[in-house]
Design a binder for these strands. Structure first.
Length: 561
RNA sequence: CGGGGCGUGGCGCAGCCUGGUAGCGCGCUUGCUUUGGGAGCAAGAAGUCGGCGGUUCAAAUCCGCCCGCCCCGACCA
């Protein structure tokens, strides 16, 4: 490709609306343009990257025997009602009516459709196992699109679904996907982790996420040197007990001190000796959630236990506890109570449910009854539950996930098969997703430098950037054209910058675009009989004779793989 | 959905407080020069100042409503 014919509008300055590195660079390098919140146009260079990523995914999916198909984006609401998700998902799903007034939705995922298909076509255990996949656009009316292409309302996604006769076979497919995903992310040149994850609305039993470490990520994971790795949504840890005082209920006047910080410094005690009480409302009434004063509540863990909930409003807090938020506690309350395990067996200070007062000497399990479960948020430095080493916490971009769905969808949609004994059974399913745009953004986040993007060879828009410094100089032009033709013949993907612009601009654009190798053809070095090859990553440079350039490039490309 | 910020040629911004002929840098066009790290000179094109309404002799500027975009939080297969 010649730069004079390629549409790649580069920008000298960062776009005002961009915050994340990948967002800034992808816009500046002319890869994408934003149409509206969470909607992006992929320009030629961006689309080339996306296609390469998709090709790698397709290659690896095919390699584990998955079969690609294409499914409608527009779907009848009826099928989503059958699994119950039409009602549970809410505003995140785009909904519309067709001309006949029928309720339709725009697909945000395809469990319903694929299971519908399986329910009609799979009859016998002889038809199984099957693994079907699609690489298609999904639509979600995100509450908050952000960070460029990292969270958008429309995005392509590879989704695969496995259908098996039993848990063992599902286990096999799950494992195959794990291996396949690892190969995909390795081939894409990413640093990544596999962590335990919360199955969430997928409603499955086991789930893992593939995460690319990056400060631009939205998720956090807890990691241990022993290999323990989990999304903070469900990560667990061990924490030490403080030295507890004597038990024995005693009311304390704590006028105008409400927060944990205020109370602990007012009383001269450490926050770990307090109980933090949070009142939330569920469909079944109020629930008091409690963690130690120095800890934070992990909402997703609580949600697992009590279902959908929201923080109580001030007047609700008053009604339930008789006090304002700063003075509430478990003692004497007759509502559902959920306490973090770290509270079991200690002696604490907490709100007295009386304005201006706290109560000390509170023994959980004795002075109040509660369900003791893990509902606190893991923090760096706490101990691993597997090996007791200190945990680290890292910010990550979710680039893929795998779920064991079980029979959640097959039962709802009647996807069954007859086993060897002629008995009807629900198909055991798994669901596996990868976001190509997130792979691209994660690569930019992880590998860019102050000059621009540094693409891995496997997903670079072009492998070689051929900078022709003096396109009007007959000798330079001839040498460049010859090299260009040789590269094409050798199967090298090359972008030849033949624009009549200053060398400085050419170099800056080359570094911004981030192709792995740059070849410079200029009159100065040509007179001395050489060309320069620069490796984008690290920017090491070497001189080669024009005749040896293609071989040198091929060698370097292999080296960089 | 709650909180905050922003909206002025293609891009990045100033001007708004204190109302009075719309400005800067980059980019773009033409010409000449330059040609190994974002060139110089000259001449030019390009803006309903997000929208609607109000106040005023006069609104980019003041007031109200709305829309859009970004950030934090909630949410998130």
């Amino acid at each position: 490709m010649r730069a004079t014919r390629l549409f790649f509008p580069t920008l000298k300055e960062d776009p005002a609306e961009a915050e994340a590195i990948s967002h800034k660079l992808m816009v500046r390098a002319g890869l994408v343009r934003q149409l509206a919140a969470g909607l992006y146009i992929y320009l030629p260079l961006g689309f080339r990257v996306l296609r390469k990523i998709v090709a790698i995914i397709r290659d690896e999916m095919d390699a584990i025997g998955a079969q690609e198909m294409e499914m409608p984006v527009l779907q009848p609401a009826e099928i989503w009602r059958e699994t119950g998700r039409y009602d549970t998902i809410g505003e995140e799903m785009f909904r519309l009516k067709d001309r006949g007034g029928r309720d339709m939705v725009l697909g945000m995922t395809h469990e319903e459709i694929i299971t519908w298909l399986a329910s009609r076509e799979i009859r016998s255990y002889r038809d199984l196992p099957q693994v079907w996949y699609q690489i298609q656009t999904k639509l979600r009316d995100e509450a908050r699109p952000k960070s460029g292409v990292l969270r958008t309302r429309e995005f392509i996604m590879k989704d695969s679904y496995s259908f098996d006769t039993d848990e063992r076979a599902l286990e096999e497919n799950y494992y195959l996907h794990q291996k396949s995903y690892k190969r995909i992310f390795e081939r894409c040149g990413l640093e990544f982790l596999m962590v335990e994850s919360d199955p969430g609305m997928m409603g499955g039993a086991t789930a893992h996420e593939f995460m690319a470490p990056s400060p631009a990520g939205e998720d956090e994971v807890a990691l241990c040197s022993c290999g323990y790795a989990a999304n903070l949504e469900l990560a667990a840890s061990a924490i030490d007990n403080p030295a507890f005082p004597e038990p024995g209920l005693e009311e304390l006047a704590t006028p105008d001190v409400r927060t944990i910080d205020e109370v602990s410094s007012f009383l001269g005690i450490e926050p770990a000796l307090m109980i933090k009480s949070i009142l939330v409302m569920t469909a079944d009434g109020p629930v008091l959630a409690m963690v130690r004063g120095d800890q934070e509540l992990q909402e997703s863990k609580l949600a697992h236990l009590i279902g959908e909930h929201r923080p109580a409003r001030p007047e609700e807090i008053r009604e339930v506890t008789g006090a304002e938020a700063g003075f509430i506690g478990p003692v004497g309350l007759d509502i559902r109570m959920v306490a973090d395990r770290s509270l079991d067996g200690g002696v604490f200070i907490t709100g007295a449910n009386k304005d201006g007062h706290h109560v000390e000497g509170v023994v959980p399990g004795k002075d109040f009854q509660a369900e003791f479960v893990d509902i606190r948020r893991v923090r760096a430095g706490e101990k691993c539950i597997e090996c007791n080493s200190p945990l680290s916490v890292e910010r990550v971009i979710e680039i893929g996930n795998i779920f064991k769905l079980g029979t959640r969808y097959s039962e709802a949609l009647g996807a069954t098969f007859l086993d060897e004994e002629g008995k009807e059974k629900p198909i055991i399913m798994g669901s596996y997703g990868i976001g190509p745009a997130r792979i691209a953004a994660a690569a930019v986040e992880q590998l860019s430098d102050e000059k621009g993007i540094v693409w891995p060879v496997s997903i670079a828009p072009f492998e070689v950037h051929l900078a022709v410094l003096q396109p009007d100089d007959a000798e330079v032009s001839a040498a460049a054209e010859k090299l260009y033709a040789e590269m094409l013949a050798a199967g090298i993907e090359v972008l030849m910058d033949d624009r009549r612009i200053n060398p400085g601009v050419k170099f800056a654009d080359a570094e911004l675009l981030g192709c792995p190798l740059r070849v410079t053809v200029g009159s100065r070095s040509l007179k001395e009989g050489f060309l320069e090859i620069q490796v984008r990553q690290g920017r090491g440079e070497r001189k080669v004779a024009p005749d040896e350039a293609v071989d040198a490039l091929l060698d370097l490309l292999i080296e960089l793989q």
